[in-house]
Computed example of a mutant assay.
Amino acid sequence: MKILINCSTLSGTGVTQVAVSFIRECINIQSNEYHVFLSKTVSRELENSSFPSNFFFYTFEHHPIYGIKGFKIRKELRKLEKKINPDCVFSVFGPSWWTPLKPHLIGYAYPHYVYRDSPFFKNISFFQKIKINVFELIHLWFLKRNGKYFVCETEDVSKRLRKLFNCTEENVYTVSNTYNDFFNSYKRLEENILPEKVEGEFRFLSLCSFAPHKNLVILNKVIPLINSKFPGNKVKFVLTVDNDLFNKKIDDSVKPSIINLGRVDVDKCPQLYDECDSLFLPTTLECFSANYPEAMKMKKPIITSNLSFATSICKDAALYFDPYDEKNIVEVIEKLISSTRLAENLVEIGCKQLDIVLTPRERAEEYLKICKEIAN
């Protein structure tokens, strides 16, 4: 099978990790010919020269939707598809912003539009709601225009998307997200990424962007309460967010309790987990966060939002809190820090829970199985 893998629109951390992991796993599935469209962000994560001769890469410097340059990119994408003549096109996440001639599978990753019952919508401004509504119209219109087949990361999202698009089961597939293969081959670097710990320090890792639904601004309320219970900045929060947003959204008074690294390369993520003590994810909207299986793989306890997208994946392998209740969050943090046995128990359950999550290789095989099915 000749497959065109489209990653020309991807720039976010989570979607980039999925794309990079999938492309790398395709090396082990040698029966196909792979033509890969890369954005600048995805391209930086891959060494094209390390791939075998059945891979062909095309890097695009600009996003295909913006302005005159975007128009030229879309024209080039169509021209290349016609020249390559693939059996199938797989846009790892959509919209693709252009409509291929061949059967097109599109990854779906917009929780805002399928989880309208999330408490997130009760805690944002009127103008934020208007902005989301406008983007919803644009994104959903292009998703339906660009392709006929979709793949989601949980069955719950697939069900909701079928209802949203009023389409049949045959048009929406489910393939679970998972950790990157870097977590299988992880070897600790000689130098630490983070500063040396002080005695008694406990570190929570939030490996995500500063998008509003990630709810990291809750740290402005959580940290003062934590410091009153654990004096001396002994509880630290490790972030990987844009520095400008960090300086704008996080109060100066709580910054001594935060280590912000900025964007981190995918291959360094396992070591970040290794240097921290627990995953802290106060997110309010997800299709599937890879942070959960990553933390399980690295044997770290999880504390996260008590919402269905989290509980359906983690089950008893996590402690849960109300993401908008700083007192409840602090209670859960204190509970975890105060009990080594509890942390160990969460890790044990997480290791068992990880058995039902697809491996990166299995996920790649499932994606390609769908591509072959729609190509036929």
Score class of each variant (00 low, 15 high):
K2D: 04
I3K: 07
T13P: 00
T16V: 14
N28L: 11
S39R: 06
S50D: 13
F60W: 03
E61Q: 09
H63A: 13
P64R: 11
I68L: 14
G70R: 01
F71Q: 03
K72M: 11
K72T: 10
R78Y: 03
K82Y: 11
P100V: 08
L101C: 06
K102A: 07
L105F: 11
A109P: 07
V114T: 15
S118L: 03
F121H: 09
F127H: 11
N133S: 15
V134S: 05
F135S: 15
I138Y: 11
L140N: 15
K148Y: 02
Y149W: 14
V151S: 11
E155R: 12
D156A: 12
V157Q: 13
K159G: 12
V172M: 07
F183M: 08
N184K: 05
G200V: 11
E201K: 07
E201V: 04
F204Q: 04
S209N: 15
H213F: 08
S228F: 00
K234L: 07
N243P: 08
K248D: 11
V254S: 09
S257T: 03
L281N: 13
F288N: 06
N291F: 00
K299M: 05
I303P: 10
T304C: 15
N306L: 01
I313S: 03
L319C: 14
Y320Q: 05
D325Q: 09
E326L: 00
E326H: 05
N328L: 00
I337C: 09
S338C: 09
R341G: 04
L346W: 12
G350R: 09
K352S: 15
Q353T: 05
V357F: 14
R361A: 12
R363M: 15
C371R: 10
E373D: 10
